[in-house]
């Protein structure tokens, strides 16, 4: 009788490539005062938005003659708000040297950030500050087949979520990707929780309390249009700032 081979023990250390999901912190200015003010206003309403994500400083938009920002201070400030900056990219030689001094890595050969042709648009009043889009979802889809009841919350980190039973009022479905609810959606649905503006919400019965995509949300104090209320519907983001609800 053939003996079963003993499984080989895993080596103590393995090397594999990985794609790191993280946040780009795009610097438009290197001035201490301007950065300080903007950081405070940006995080005032949502101090706990981040939960220890890795972050990279993108320097491609800084004016060529900009003096080096105070890297050590900037890194400390972001750390205190749940981001872990570890590197700079697209930095001039002078900036890179200062960053290295402050213990940051210097990344080369990275695609530059899209140049800001126009000044920063004034954010929509109801838009929560959203981080830069995370890389597309790679995590497996999460499937829920029991009703989500008031007070229950599920979160699909890094991917989509499919709910086959009702999402009751007071329940919350959150996904970094899209949300599919093949039953009445009566609670809250938040897709693109890490800023993926291409995420969508689909349901066979729209009666939600709140929907949100990449931080842009809409409540339904007044009932939604008759064309979609209690009917199959899709919710997506248009122009990165407008919630669009369409019948399916």
């Amino acid at each position: 009788m053939p003996r079963r081979r003993e499984p080989r023990p895993a080596p103590a250390l393995e090397l594999k490539t990985t794609r790191l999901a993280g946040i780009q912190v795009i610097l438009n200015s290197a001035e201490h005062a301007a950065l300080d003010t903007h950081l405070s206003t940006l995080f005032a309403a949502t101090p706990d938005f981040f939960g220890g994500e890795a972050a990279v400083f993108e320097c491609g938009r800084l004016p060529a003659d900009a003096a080096s920002p105070d890297w050590a201070w900037l890194a400390r400030e972001l750390k205190s708000r749940g981001l872990n900056p570890f590197a700079v990219q697209n930095a001039s030689a002078e900036l890179a040297a200062a960053a290295q001094q402050a213990g940051l890595l210097v990344l080369n050969d990275v695609a530059p950030a899209p140049t800001a042709a126009e000044p920063e648009p004034v954010p929509e009043p109801e838009a929560v500050p959203a981080p830069e889009p995370a890389p597309s979802a790679t995590a497996p889809t999460r499937i829920i087949d029991k009703p989500l009841r008031s007070g229950q919350r599920v979160y699909a980190a890094g991917g989509d979520i499919v709910v086959l039973a009702a999402v009751n009022p007071g329940a919350e479905v959150i996904a970094d990707g899209s949300i599919h609810v093949y039953a009445p959606l009566k609670g809250r649905a938040l897709a693109g929780a890490r800023g993926d503006t291409s995420a969508r919400i689909f349901t066979t019965h729209l009666e939600a309390e709140l929907v949100s995509i990449a931080g842009v949300y809409r409540t339904f104090d007044a009932a939604p249009d008759a064309a979609v209320a209690r009917k199959p519907a899709q919710i997506r983001l248009a122009d990165a700032s407008q919630i669009v609800i369409e019948p399916l």
Binding site: R149, S150, N168
Partner: peptide, 13 residues
């Protein structure tokens, strides 16, 4: 009804 929904969730967990 909402509170019953909540307690059902607690029973299930």
């Amino acid at each position: 009804v909402r509170d019953s929904d909540r307690i059902l969730g607690i029973i299930q967990s």
